[in-house]
Structure formats: structure tokens, C-alpha cells
């Protein structure tokens, strides 16, 4: 079975985010004065082959823990869906 995983990697609460802060100040200077906070993160989309949803889920969680996110500064979440062959 082919599966599609969408992975969001975000900075943990309390970790300074210089990119988010700079983006917020740019938005405010564009006139979006209501913007209180911006947090920048990463989005990854991947397709994988696994025998079952449980197996795909286990693999994606493992990928996030070992490589895609750094647990010192980042949190992750993901969504998993089956995708059509071909």
C-alpha cells in the first residue's frame, strides 16, 4: 500500500523564533497591525510504501523522532492517508 504523510515541524513553545519575529514585523509594516505572533515551521510531504496503516504510522513517527524534527527545539505532528496506486 502507498501512503501519503503530511508532516508539520514547529518550534516548541518558549523557543525563540527569529524568522517568525521578522515575518511578524514585516506583516505589521504592511499594515496588518493586528498580527500578534508569527511562528515559522516546516512542512514536509512524503509518500511511502507500507503493508498497513499501523506500519506506515509507526515508520512516520520514527522518521520524525530520528531526523525530521529535533526534539530539543521542535515538535511535530502528521497526517496519514492512503493514496491511489500509480
Amino acid at each position: 500500500m502507498r501512503w501519503r504523510a503530511r508532516v508539520w515541524v514547529t518550534l516548541r513553545a518558549g523557543v525563540l523564533d527569529p524568522q517568525g519575529a521578522a515575518t511578524r514585523s514585516a506583516l505589521v509594516s504592511l499594515g496588518f497591525t493586528g498580527v500578534q505572533t508569527v511562528r515559522a515551521g516546516k512542512f514536509l510531504e512524503l509518500e511511502l510504501v507500507a503493508a498497513s496503516r499501523e506500519e506506515a504510522d509507526r515508520q512516520v513517527a520514527d522518521m520524525c523522532r530520528r531526523l525530521l524534527a529535533n526534539p530539543v527545539t521542535e515538535d511535530f505532528r502528521y497526517e496519514l492517508e492512503g493514496c491511489q496506486e500509480g
Binding site: L11, V15, L16, D17, P18, Q19, A22, N70, V72, T73
Partner: peptide, 17 residues
């Protein structure tokens, strides 16, 4: 070394960007 866990902690972008 940080990513490998041989030393504790992690790096973020410079505050100045």
C-alpha cells in the same frame, strides 16, 4: 555533534537572521 547527541542542545537561526 549536537545533532548526534554527543553534546547537549541545538542550534537556532541567529537572532539577527
Amino acid at each position: 555533534l549536537l545533532e548526534a547527541g554527543l553534546l547537549p542542545g541545538a542550534m537556532l537561526r541567529n537572532r539577527s537572521l
